[in-house]
Structures are given as structure tokens and as C-alpha cells.
């Protein structure tokens, strides 16, 4: 992300040292990706199993049902619920875990597109002077959200669904409207903070709700990263970065919100 030429005086600091540290950390990150792919494969397998099993349904079902996700209930009841050989074949809908995967992918897509738009606006000089650290934050966070989207999409594809490239259908319009009002870096940081907060809350809700241990493991590796984004954004905005001893689900999106994006 190119920014307007910064006229602030250079500080006496070893940037090389910081870059070196960041490179090392990026290498470590690359090391974690193969493990994540393995996890995604396990989740796909688990989800296939879940469409046949009744075990592990949780509170997200309530929300999913409220959104008309009757198929989730059917899927969770699955074949084990009926032993009759004469019963009409049931049409299995996506399980709650699959709905969560779709929701997560769509939220991640929205985060990527929001950061991308913000970076484009900054590059075009529409946001005034952009500090290099803020630009670096936006680029790194965007790349991480893209990685998150890939992880959820690999689960969906593994379970026989198409990858989701669309943003969360309910939030997209709201975020785009807010994006249109962003006039400077502070506005952009506030918008990003809202979005990251929603993502973190949604993942926390998912951790309570997911049936598959493998899916829970993936959500557990992503939720703290979104929380870190929140902390850094709060800090940059001058707000105490870790105000709560416990993460909350305030702002979490309902599991079935992106169900319409699930296509086989």
C-alpha cells in the first residue's frame, strides 16, 4: 500500500530489526499452514459424518431454526433417526457446522473486501496521510482474513459445496454504506474495529455451537487472531486495548445468515 509522502521526522529506531523480527514470524506462520490444511480436511470429513449423526447439536440450532434453517434439523437428525425402510427419503440440508463455515467464509470475504477498499482509497490519497504502521496493519490483516476465508472454503469444498467468494449478505450493504462515509484513517480504523469485533464475537459463538471438534479447533485458531486485530485497532485509536477479561458474543452474527450462499 503506497501512502502519501510522510513528512514526519524519522525517528531513531532500528526498523531493520523490526522487519527482521516480522520476517521470522512470517516464516513461522507459513509453517502453521500445512497443519491448518490437514485440519480442514478433518473438518470436511467430520461434517460429512455430522450429516448422518445426531450427536453434538448445540444452541446455534435455535438461531438457525429461527432463520428458517429447517434443513439443519433434518440433517442433524439424519439417517439414525429413522429405521423404517419404507420412510420417504429425507432431503438433508446443511448442518449447523456447515452453516457456520459458510458464515465464517462470508465474513472473512467481507473483511478482505473492506480492507481492500480502504487500501485503495488510501493509495488514491482519499484518506489523507496514512502512517506506515497503519498501512502495514491493513495489509497484514487483509492477508490473514484471506487465509481464514481459504480455510473455511476448503472445508466447504471438502464437504461437497462450492467455495464462497461473496461477502456476508446481511452485513455487506451496511459496511459498504459505512465505507462510503470514511474520510480518513481514523474512520477506516473505526470501521475495521467494528468488523473485527463482529468476526471475533461470531467465532466465539461458533466455539460454543460447533459440533465437530475439528471445526472447533479451526475456529479456536482464528478467534484469537481477530481478537488481536481488535486490540491493536483499539490501541491505535487510543482506547485501552484489552478492556474485558472475557470475550463476549455481543454482535455475533446468526449461524444461518449466509446459508443462502451454500451451493452444491
Amino acid at each position: 500500500m503506497r501512502t502519501k509522502k510522510d513528512t514526519t521526522p524519522e525517528i531513531a529506531i532500528s526498523e531493520h530489526e523490526l522487519y527482521s523480527l516480522t520476517e521470522e514470524l512470517a516464516d513461522k506462520h507459513q509453517d502453521t499452514l500445512p497443519k491448518m490444511r490437514e485440519g480442514a480436511n478433518e473438518v470436511s470429513e467430520s461434517i460429512r459424518e455430522l450429516t448422518k449423526s445426531k450427536y453434538g447439536r448445540r444452541s446455534f440450532l435455535t438461531k438457525a431454526a429461527a432463520l428458517g434453517a429447517g434443513g439443519a434439523l433434518l440433517a442433524a437428525c439424519g439417517t439414525a433417526a429413522s429405521t423404517s425402510t419404507t420412510a420417504a427419503p429425507k432431503v438433508a440440508g446443511p448442518s449447523v457446522d456447515l452453516q457456520v463455515a459458510a458464515l465464517a467464509a462470508s465474513l472473512e470475504n467481507l473483511a478482505v473486501s473492506t480492507y481492500k477498499a480502504g487500501i485503495s482509497a488510501a493509495t488514491a490519497g482519499k484518506l489523507g496521510t496514512v502512517p506506515p504502521a497503519v498501512a502495514n496493519f491493513a495489509e497484514t490483516a487483509m492477508a490473514q482474513h484471506a487465509d481464514h476465508a481459504k480455510a473455511w472454503n476448503s472445508i466447504l469444498v471438502g464437504a461437497g459445496y462450492k467455495a464462497i467468494s461473496a461477502p456476508d449478505p446481511a452485513l455487506n450493504g451496511v459496511i459498504n454504506a459505512d465505507l462510503g462515509k470514511v474520510a480518513n484513517v481514523v474512520d477506516l480504523a473505526k470501521l475495521a474495529l467494528n468488523l473485527e469485533g463482529v468476526a471475533a464475537a461470531t467465532y466465539l459463538e461458533a466455539l460454543y455451537a460447533l459440533s465437530s471438534k475439528s471445526a472447533r479447533a479451526i475456529a479456536a485458531t482464528i478467534q484469537p487472531v481477530e481478537m488481536q486485530h481488535v486490540a491493536i485497532l483499539n490501541f491505535v485509536l487510543g482506547t485501552y486495548p484489552v478492556p474485558n477479561a472475557f470475550a463476549t458474543t455481543t454482535g455475533a452474527r446468526p449461524a444461518g445468515e449466509a446459508k443462502s450462499l451454500l451451493v452444491k
Partner: peptide, 23 residues
């Protein structure tokens, strides 16, 4: 708090969250 954002080195923006997936 807040930090002088303009004076921070670029790397400071992301050094706190190096992994897309928590190890």
C-alpha cells in the same frame, strides 16, 4: 496511548499478530 502512529515504524503495525492461525 494512543501511540504517535505517524512515528511508528511500519513493522509495528503488524508485529503483534504474526500468525493468521494461532499456533
Amino acid at each position: 496511548l494512543p501511540p504517535p502512529a505517524a512515528q511508528l515504524p511500519a513493522a509495528a503495525g503488524s508485529i503483534g499478530f504474526p500468525n493468521a492461525f494461532y499456533p
